[in-house]
Design a protein around this nucleic acid. Structure first.
Length: 104
DNA sequence: AGATTGACCGTGT
DNA sequence: GACACGGCCAATC
């Protein structure tokens, strides 16, 4: 069974991000089979309604900067959730050298 | 069906 | 290191 829709594929990739780790939009896009579709990934996340199935809060910018979040207080809630999961933060950004997800 | 938007990324200054 | 510009992809109006 393979997801024919880009949205579904991206959702599967995001859902595969281990707890305490974060992936960048470009990373997810590449894993979804479309390197460069980082913008599309972000849009899908914004329209994503299954936050419990797709932890979109584990997806951050390429520099580790927390981008928008359609729930809670936006990036504020997002940061709290990530930090609670064990993600290391560097000010208002995620410490990618410590908490960036490395897909195998 | 066409045009615009959007939670981006890379490069240049 | 910070700011500005352009390019890529998919979803939405």
């Amino acid at each position: 069974m393979k997801s024919n829709n880009f949205k579904d594929t991206v959702s599967a990739v995001v859902a595969g991000i281990p707890k305490g780790k974060v992936a960048t939009y470009g990373q997810v896009a590449a894993l979804a089979g479309n390197p460069g579709a980082s913008r599309a990934v972000g849009m899908i996340m914004s329209k994503n309604k299954d936050t419990k199935a797709v932890p979109c809060h584990r997806v951050v910018g390429s520099t580790g900067a927390l981008t928008g979040y359609a729930y809670g207080n936006g990036t504020t809630t997002k940061k709290q959730m990530l930090q609670k999961e064990g993600v290391v933060f560097k000010g208002e950004k995620v410490d990618l050298k410590e908490s960036k997800w490395e897909p195998k």
